[in-house]
Design a binder for these strands. Structure first.
Lengths: 138, 138
DNA sequence: GCTTGACTTAGACAAAGTCTATTGTAGGAT
DNA sequence: ATCCTACAATAGACTTTGTCTAAGTCAAGC
């Protein structure tokens, strides 16, 4: 069963067929779908679900902190259900494949006070770019 | 005089009023304008300049490596003329203010082989998020 | 001062996302 | 079990950001 769905249920989230389908579609590892991809897969399970609902539902999941928004390319946002283990992303510049990665150390400590401009820093986002093995050998 | 403009001229770039204006608008430190902001400022200096030209010109500057594209929020791309000193970005989550920052160390070395999935990594992009002093005191 | 190919233009088009007014329904109250 | 009501879903118009095209303009070399 869906971990994501369990977590959402546990928060008193009003459950509907649409929300269940969106949660099911998103569940898994190394999942980074765009809103439109989520919609396409949701429609396969529940043909009458609307685009607006998918956007709303994704937005709520992000607000609840159960799903992360990532924008690895400069086009559509992607949604990542792996919100409970902090991680960064590795993206293939050719084909767009995305992997979750866990660098050692904390990039926060690499930013000296003199480079903080008085900001209170709460979060760091790191995107590695390169070429995946498949594209490299092609 | 504009450094950016000098560099472009030195590459045999055909100079036109439109290109000059775009280069002038972009010149400076901690400049991170969206294409539309560039257009708005360009129009102030050269009323008949078109949106398409601004997009074209920005795209060419990026191809020439004289300007960087950054997407710190998930909306419009921003253009950064500071292309010759590698740097990352610090963004205020409230007001969107952006600073160029120079962390110590190289985040590339923080990613162990076991987390590279066979990729050849060519680039890292780091975005720090937080609250700027102005927003913190408001 | 011509000529020519590169540059610019206006506006149509496209993709991604937001908003609104209306209709539907989950889940508590009875 | 049924009713109510606030919350959720819907269709589709709208907005924002960016791309494309066909036709007109102009910088720079001759």
């Amino acid at each position: 069963m869906s971990d994501l769905l369990e977590r959402l249920r546990g928060r008193g989230w009003r459950m509907t067929a649409q929300r269940r389908v969106v949660a099911e579609v998103l569940d898994g590892d190394h999942i980074h779908l765009t809103a439109d991809e989520v919609h396409a897969r949701a429609v396969a399970k529940l043909p009458e679900i609307s685009r607006a609902t998918v956007y709303n539902t994704l937005g709520e999941m992000v607000s609840l902190g159960e799903v992360l928004e990532v924008s690895t390319d400069r086009r559509a946002k992607r949604y990542d259900p792996n919100a409970h283990r902090p991680h960064h992303h590795l993206v293939c510049a050719r084909c767009g494949a995305i992997r979750d990665v866990h660098p050692v150390g904390d990039p926060l400590t690499d930013l000296p006070d003199s480079e903080r401009f008085g900001f209170t820093i709460s979060d760091v986002e790191v995107t590695y770019r390169g070429t995946c093995p498949t594209c490299a050998s092609a």
